[in-house]
Design a protein around this nucleic acid. Sequence first.
RNA 1: CGGGAUGUAGCGUAGCCCGGUUAUCGCGCCUGGUUUGGGACCAGGAGGUCGCAAGUUCGAAUCUUGCCAUCCCGACCA
Length: 492
Amino acid sequence: MSKEITSREEDYSQWYNDLILKGGLADYSAVRGCMVIKPYGYAIWENMRDQLDKMFKDTGHENAYFPLFVPKSLFEAEEKNAEGFAKECAVVTHYRLKTDPDNKGKLIVDPEAKLDEELVVRPTSEAIIWNTYKGWIQSYRDLPLLINQWANVVRWEMRTRLFLRTAEFLWQEGHTAHATRDEAVDETVQMLNVYATFAEEFMAMPVIKGIKSANERFAGAEDTYCIEALMQDGKALQAGTSHFLGQNFAKAFDVKFADKENKLDYVWATSWGVSTRLIGALVMAHSDDQGLVLPPKLAPIQVVIVPIFKGAEQKNLIDDKVKVLQQQLKAAGIKVKYDDNDNNRPGWKFAEYEMKGVPVRIAIGARDIASNVVEVARRDTKEKASMSIDGLAENIIKLLADIQSAIYNKAKGFRDEHITNADNWDEFIQLLDTKTGFIAAHWDGTPETEEKIKELTKATIRCIPLDNKMEDGKCILTGNKSSQRVLFARAY
RNA sequence: CGGGAUGUAGCGUAGCCCGGUUAUCGCGCCUGGUUUGGGACCAGGAGGUCGCAAGUUCGAAUCUUGCCAUCCCGACCA
């Protein structure tokens, strides 16, 4: 059949693409590096967004919206940030087209319509937001300022991959301002914890909370905290970041506040974000060679009901029964779909919903109704069981919870299996090339050493785990003294 | 952006080297019927800017050039 999926074994990249395309999450578009997010994929994003938005609001944040365009002069105000993003910015230079006098029916950029100042299409919004905050903050009474925005950003990446790295992507970016350093650091860590909780409890994806080395730090940040996940091919994926920005942006945009003693000081800042990349992470974390495996808490469809019948009479009988069941399941808060489309037979539907990663499938036929049961199949293990129609909703709720924790445990088992200590260079190389995953190794703490290791192996320091224990050792490359292990991996 | 590969109907493809009637086949799609417990079957039918643009030629899916997109490997990537 045309919907066959390339196996992970055969070609991991192709497997990933197949899942996205054939699972109906997204499609390529006519625009280089930009994808179309299809309804099924967007529904996952909506579920992620709704949950995260709730968590942001529960921690005191409000949503706002800032412009897509950033005047170049503002963009360059915070030097490090500007430098970091300069190479991947789309820039608007003109505001008008006109008909081509030499080529009928075609348009050209009107050279008369050149902008005095170029507009940068935001790759991130610190600049425009901090320029705005300047007008909003005068006193400690205006702080903290806790704002989030849901937006699209553009980063002109050289090589793109569906969801993992696209030229335009959807994300949220929180931007907060605080009166003290400590409060800003607390906020940074708090939001990192929100991300970690979301990843583990909703995406069923275990993550390591850590801090980035100087090389991997966000341009313009003092510290970048991150959650790192491990994909099934042994490569790491940065799933979310939370930055402590110090007073860098306050100084760049001259945002000062008066404290209780009427003393002026620059405010302290954070920014934090996750993007549609999370969908890529979700896909790679759990799926198998038959298709997507989605965690029940984020699945657009949690339960699909497939009727099996001979003739219209049986179909009517099943319809009546399903109508009741559907109401019960919906009342129990379950997202349920009844697929009684007559174009496809049950076997086709089974395969289709497996590919789409629907966590639970219920098959119901005349003989089931006769014995007051349904056949319940779970996507993660492919196990099938007969379940009584009485109290079905309660049992399905339990099953969905089971699946949620089962796929988390499976992913966590894999992840934990793939954190390995390396005590010298040979071991390090060996592990990178055979076992893959996170490698915990001593590092002398210098950017030069990290850079060298990256050159030699393509492995980078993913993070220094927050709960790291101190331990004397020697750097695997230089042999210099080290006080703790850091996590290396090849990464997306 | 450099190296390699690819682009023919919604998907997968034959034809291209060696230019020549109406562009091949399978899946899917539409109509009708029979079916339905793991990707159904029969009959009829629709669907094509051969990625786009220029060029060579009496004639281009086929040859040439440029461009666009995708994939793989690099470089790049908070």
